[in-house]
Deep mutational scan, measured.
Amino acid sequence: MATADDFKLIRDIHSTGGRRQVFGSREQKPFEDLVDLGWLKRSSVDSRATHYQITERGTSAAL
């Protein structure tokens, strides 16, 4: 179930172009929650960072 923080984060991601790069596993937790909701997808993972991209469902949630 989505929380107020989830909606705040997806709106922030949407307003800044729909993509986010995250460093460190602790910082990934809120983004992984949005992946579980179907609002974000992991577009790539490298040794230092994970890249996320907003989905259509995420765009709808952000509006």
Rank of each mutant, 00 (worst) to 15 (best):
M1Y: 13
M1I: 13
M1E: 12
M1V: 13
M1H: 13
A2M: 05
A2S: 05
A2K: 04
A2G: 11
A2E: 05
T3S: 10
T3A: 05
T3Y: 05
T3C: 07
T3P: 03
A4C: 15
A4N: 09
A4S: 11
A4D: 12
A4P: 13
A4L: 12
A4E: 13
A4T: 10
D5G: 09
D5E: 13
D5T: 06
D5Q: 10
D5K: 10
D5C: 14
D6W: 05
D6G: 05
D6N: 12
D6E: 07
D6L: 09
F7G: 02
F7P: 01
F7H: 05
F7W: 10
F7A: 03
K8S: 08
K8T: 09
K8N: 09
K8Q: 10
K8I: 12
K8V: 10
K8A: 12
K8C: 12
L9R: 05
L9K: 03
L9P: 01
L9F: 03
I10Q: 00
I10Y: 00
I10R: 01
I10M: 03
I10L: 06
I10E: 01
R11V: 12
R11G: 05
D12L: 12
D12E: 14
D12I: 10
I13M: 04
I13T: 01
I13K: 01
I13C: 02
H14P: 00
H14L: 12
H14I: 06
S15F: 12
S15N: 13
S15E: 12
S15P: 01
S15C: 15
T16F: 05
T16M: 08
T16H: 11
T16Y: 05
T16K: 11
T16R: 09
G17W: 03
G17T: 04
G17V: 03
G17R: 05
G17S: 05
G18R: 02
G18Q: 02
R19F: 14
R19E: 13
R20P: 04
R20S: 06
R20F: 08
R20C: 14
Q21R: 12
Q21G: 07
Q21T: 15
Q21S: 15
Q21A: 13
Q21H: 11
V22K: 03
V22C: 05
V22E: 03
V22A: 07
V22W: 03
V22Y: 03
F23D: 13
F23K: 12
F23A: 14
F23C: 15
G24N: 13
G24K: 09
G24E: 09
G24A: 08
G24D: 12
S25V: 13
S25A: 12
S25K: 13
R26A: 15
R26L: 15
R26S: 15
R26P: 11
R26I: 15
R26H: 15
R26K: 15
R26N: 14
E27W: 09
Q28H: 07
Q28M: 09
Q28A: 09
Q28W: 05
Q28I: 09
K29P: 04
K29C: 06
K29L: 07
P30Y: 06
P30L: 06
P30H: 07
P30M: 07
P30R: 11
P30C: 07
P30A: 09
P30I: 06
F31D: 00
F31T: 02
F31N: 01
F31A: 02
F31M: 05
E32W: 05
E32R: 07
E32I: 06
E32D: 11
E32K: 08
D33Q: 14
D33L: 14
D33F: 11
D33Y: 11
D33S: 13
L34C: 03
L34S: 01
V35L: 05
V35M: 06
V35T: 04
V35R: 03
D36Q: 12
D36T: 13
D36F: 11
L37Q: 03
L37N: 02
L37M: 07
L37G: 01
L37W: 03
L37T: 02
G38L: 04
G38R: 04
G38P: 00
G38W: 02
G38K: 05
G38E: 04
G38V: 02
W39T: 00
W39C: 02
W39A: 01
W39G: 00
W39D: 01
W39F: 03
L40Q: 00
L40G: 00
L40E: 01
L40V: 05
K41W: 11
K41G: 06
K41H: 10
K41T: 15
K41I: 15
R42A: 08
R42W: 04
R42G: 04
R42M: 08
R42P: 06
R42T: 07
R42S: 06
R42H: 06
S43V: 15
S43H: 10
S44F: 15
S44K: 13
S44R: 13
S44Q: 13
S44I: 13
S44D: 09
V45D: 08
V45A: 09
V45G: 09
V45C: 10
V45M: 10
V45R: 10
D46V: 06
D46L: 06
D46A: 07
D46Q: 07
S47Q: 11
S47K: 10
S47R: 09
R48M: 14
R48P: 07
R48S: 13
R48E: 15
R48A: 13
A49W: 14
A49V: 13
A49C: 14
A49L: 10
A49R: 07
A49N: 08
T50C: 07
T50R: 08
T50Y: 08
T50K: 07
T50N: 07
H51L: 15
H51G: 07
H51S: 12
H51Q: 11
H51N: 12
H51P: 02
Y52L: 02
Y52W: 03
Y52T: 01
Y52H: 01
Q53L: 10
I54F: 01
I54A: 02
I54V: 04
I54C: 02
I54R: 00
T55N: 03
T55L: 03
T55M: 02
E56G: 07
E56A: 12
E56D: 12
E56C: 10
R57P: 06
R57Q: 14
R57M: 14
R57S: 14
R57N: 11
G58K: 00
G58F: 00
G58C: 01
G58Q: 00
G58H: 01
G58W: 00
G58I: 00
G58L: 00
T59Q: 09
T59G: 03
T59K: 11
T59A: 08
S60H: 14
S60R: 13
S60W: 14
S60Y: 13
A61K: 04
A61T: 04
A61V: 09
A61F: 05
A61G: 02
A62H: 02
A62S: 04
A62W: 02
A62V: 05
A62T: 03
L63V: 08
L63R: 07
L63H: 11
L63G: 05
L63N: 07
L63S: 06
